[in-house]
Nucleic acid binder design. Structure first.
Length: 346
DNA sequence: TCGGGACAGTCAGTTACATCA
DNA sequence: ACTGATGTAACTGACTGTCCC
């Protein structure tokens, strides 16, 4: 089942790239968090997200970016005429990202430098990363020097402890930056420190900003997924309600027939059958969940313990749609009903 | 081998700000 | 010019996994 979802900005004035969100509803696991835990210490899971287009496993949520209007290439060609659309609010997009590939090509050379940048204050915008914040409030550009001395605990958790009250001054990423980050996210939804540093350098942002952007982006993706799941559940609920109504009606009709003996004997055998083993009456074989094919999400969800345990140990299905995939095997009212077997509980 | 502390990363929830109608 | 809605960058606290002693 594939649901299309547009993540495009409702505000056409911003002319943001429209994102086609292909949501594979199935036993996808926590695809969005595929990189989870592999953080900085999993060197093996390192950063091929712009160099190796096929090696990565298909994520459960796949974002396809249509950015033709931006003139953004991916991977961007080195020195290509990247769109130099007028920067929003004076941000120096003339020093636009050269190439993503080159970012990692230079990664080895600058590994130590990047590591050094990471080990310094994450808000050190004036330090390791050239940042021209010209007309963007200037808060970050200026406080960088002040924050430089803070030998804080690595890359995360910058706070306004080391910056003034203006630290919260919000920056708006340029379209180019957003598009670039989107493409990066499309390739890989989590970053290791090297990738983060390279991307930050590429975009003239602080690593912390890249980190936050990815966090927020994951949250937005999850939110969209939740909305899709919710919509799917709503439709399931409607279908099941309709089926329930139909079955009640059928029961009422059968009861009415039962009161009329001449017709009773002419009932089709398949309509009302009794299981010889459990002695339960199955008014309609369709009312029982059909056994799901082995290996499907439905089969997995039929086994109560088959759901992969999540972080906390408790089962945590990645998607409502996956969880309720079994309901799709219900012959709903609109679907043709299968021929009734002699017994339906073998 | 086990337990605990330090550290790093992620997430959910929230806040604050920018933009638009 | 003002205001409410909306989007999103940034922050916070909690949690988990890994490493090291």
């Amino acid at each position: 089942m594939e649901l299309g979802l547009s993540l495009g900005e409702p505000d056409a004035g911003r002319a943001a790239p429209e994102l086609g969100l292909g949501l594979g509803v199935g036993p996808a696991g926590r695809g969005v968090e595929a990189g989870r835990g592999s953080g900085g210490r999993a060197a093996g899971a390192e950063a091929r997200w712009w160099a190796a287009p096929v090696a990565e496993p298909e994520p459960a949520v796949r974002l396809s970016l249509v950015s033709s209007g931006l003139g953004l290439q991916w991977p961007p060609a080195s020195g290509s005429g990247r769109s130099t659309e007028a920067p929003a609010r004076g941000f120096d997009v003339n020093r636009a990202p050269s190439t993503a590939a080159s970012a990692f090509a230079a990664e080895d050379d600058e590994e130590d430098q990047a590591a050094g940048a990471l080990s310094s204050s994450p808000n050190d915008s004036g330090g390791s990363f050239p940042l021209d914040l010209g007309g963007r409030g200037g808060a970050h550009g200026e406080v960088g020097g002040a924050a430089r001395a803070g030998g804080e605990r690595s890359s995360s958790r910058a706070s306004d402890e080391d910056e003034g009250a203006s630290a919260r001054k919000k920056l708006r990423l340029s379209k180019e930056q957003s598009a670039f980050l989107e493409e990066s996210f499309k390739e890989q939804s989590t970053l290791n420190p090297k990738q983060k540093a390279a991307l930050a350098k590429q975009l003239n942002l602080r690593p912390r900003q890249v980190e936050v952007w990815f966090q927020n982006r994951r949250a937005r993706t999850k939110l969209k997924q939740t909305e899709v799941d919710c919509e799917y559940l709503k439709r399931c609920c409607e279908a099941l309600t309709e089926e329930n109504r139909r079955l009640h009606k059928e029961i009422a009709e059968l009861r009415a027939l039962k009161t009329a003996p001449p017709f009773y004997m002419h009932l089709p055998a398949t309509t009302l059958s009794m299981c010889p083993s459990c002695e339960r009456v199955a008014s309609n074989p369709a009312s029982a969940p059909a056994p799901a094919p082995p290996g499907t999400a439905a089969a997995a969800s039929n086994k109560s313990s088959a759901v992969a345990p999540a972080r906390g140990g408790e089962p945590r299905p990645s998607s409502f749609a996956a969880l309720f995939a079994a309901t799709r095997s219900f012959p709903l009212a609109s679907q043709p009903r299968p021929p009734a077997p002699a017994s339906n509980c073998l």
